[in-house]
Structure formats: C-alpha cells, structure tokens
C-alpha cells in the first residue's frame, strides 16, 4: 500500500482536453417560451476530452474524463441565478441561455488520488460569429447570425501531471485517451491565434485533429525562419553601419 503513494520521479503524464462553448441563436418561438425573452442565444460551456466521438454531433467528448476529474465548477456571470455551477459527474458542462458574452471561470478539481490542487482557467463565452479581423467588426444581426449556424469556441490544452503518485499513474494508464484523428474529416475549430482558419472552420461541427498541431508547428517554424532570416540580414546591416560609424569617427578625429 505504501508503495502506491510514492511519486514516480522523472515522469510527467498529460491528458488532452478541450474547453469552450457552443452557441446557437434562438428562434423567435423559442425566445417566447423563455422566462426571460431578452435572451437571444442558448449556449453550452464544457470541459471535454479533445478527441471527438464518432457519430455524435459535438466537439470533443470521446472519453469520460471522470477517471481523473472529480468535479468542474463553472462560474457564470453574476446576473445568472446561482452563478457558480458545480458539476460532479460527466458530462462536465452547463447549458444556459443569454444575450451577452462574458468571461467564465472554470475550476477543475482532480480526484483525491492525484494529490493535486485544482486548476483554474478562463473561457470567454463566444456567442457571435467569428470574424477574420476580430472585435472591431459589427456584430451581425440575429437573422444573419442564425443562418451562419452555431458558433464554436474551443481551446485545446493538455493537463500535465508531474511525478504522479504510483496509484494515480495506474489510474491514468488504465484510461489511455482516444488519440486525435490524423486527418481532417470535419471543419477546423476556429481560433483567434490562427485567423486564416476562418474559412476552414465553416460548415458544421468542428473537430480537433493532429493536422492542426502540425499546421501550427509549421506556422511557428515558418515564423521562426523568417525571424532568423531577418535577424541575419539585420546583423549584416549592423556590421556595415558600425564600420561606417568607425570611419566617420576616425574622420572626425583626424580633422
């Protein structure tokens, strides 16, 4: 038993998750049925496993994360009744209706075996359709937005455990995560860090793939190459300039 509570040193283990929201515009009929008719959207904020489940029309959620997550607390805007929503069992999600975007605090508590503290992350609830350039563009009218379909805003991340306890490690290795698909089958989830993906994100429920990781790696590599190239050029330029400066100073000194 004692061996179970020993940390396995030099090992870190992670689990890919996604967090974010999906929002759809309410039809006028649905709005009438609501207790608060000023709400224009219905949305679901969730913490899920990154891989999507075949045949189910949602982003992510292939694995049940409750084997290492004990509970997830979502802190909604204060104007909601009981703004702190604690979800003790999967699916770890909250569905609500509303009219405005706001920051949601998500607090993930792990199972006691992990011996880890809860981690807190933030998600900006996204209701209005993505635009390539970001905020300044006006929010499209509701009927236009409705035609554009549900809005998805998801962030991929990896929860990393360093030197896990032996028994926690056993629990984790007993539940290997579903790997992300290697090819693009569905639209790409849009992300503000990659505005170019706007077109690719249109047309249905998106899915996270390893292609995205590869693409981003390429972009980063590309950017690094550009920077290094610029830097090299700049250095040459600098040397030249320094030579010129020396020459001028010498001239001044001679005179």
């Amino acid at each position: 038993m004692a061996n179970e509570r020993v940390r396995v040193r030099g090992l870190s283990i992670f689990r890919p998750i996604i967090y974010g929201n999906t929002a759809t515009v309410l039809t006028p009929k649905e709005r009438e049925a609501l207790p608060s008719p000023d709400h224009t959207h219905k949305w679901t904020v969730a913490v899920r496993s990154a891989a999507s489940k075949d045949g189910i029309d949602s982003v992510g959620g292939a694995d049940d994360l409750s084997y290492f997550i004990k509970r997830v607390a979502f802190k909604l805007h204060d104007t909601y009744p009981n703004p702190s929503r604690t979800i003790d069992k999967p699916p770890f999600e909250v569905s609500e209706t509303g009219w405005g975007e706001f920051e949601i605090q998500i607090r993930i508590t792990f199972i006691p075996e992990s011996g880890e503290k809860a981690i807190t992350l933030y998600h900006h609830l996204k209701l209005h359709p993505w635009t390539a350039s970001g905020d300044p563009e006006p929010i499209p009218p509701l009927d236009v937005a409705m035609k554009m379909g549900p809005v998805h805003s998801w962030q991929y991340d990896e929860i990393t455990f360093n030197d896990p306890y032996q028994n926690f490690l056993t629990i984790l290795t007993n539940h290997p995560p579903t790997p992300l698909p290697k090819a693009k089958r569905k639209p790409v989830p849009f992300h503000t860090s990659h505005p170019a993906s706007l077109e690719a994100s249109k047309g249905g429920v998106p899915e996270f793939t390893t292609v995205m990781e590869k693409e981003e790696a390429d972009r980063l590599e590309e950017a690094k190459k550009t920077v290094l190239k610029q830097h090299a050029e700049m250095k040459l330029h600098l040397e030249e300039k320094e030579r010129e400066l020396k020459r001028l100073q010498k001239q001044l000194g001679e005179a």
Partner: peptide, 25 residues
C-alpha cells in the same frame, strides 16, 4: 498514454525538491 520521461539523474529534473503541481500546457 501521453507520458514524458525525463532524466532522473541530472540536476535539471529533480532540482526542485518541491513538487511541481498540475498545470495546463
């Protein structure tokens, strides 16, 4: 299983006697 192993012996991995808590990448 999404496991990364680090060298135990080097001063790098175990310098921090304190445990590094769980984090998001």
């Amino acid at each position: 299983h999404c496991i990364t192993r680090t060298e135990q012996t080097g001063s790098g991995s175990t310098t921090k006697a304190a445990h590094q808590p769980a984090f998001l990448r």
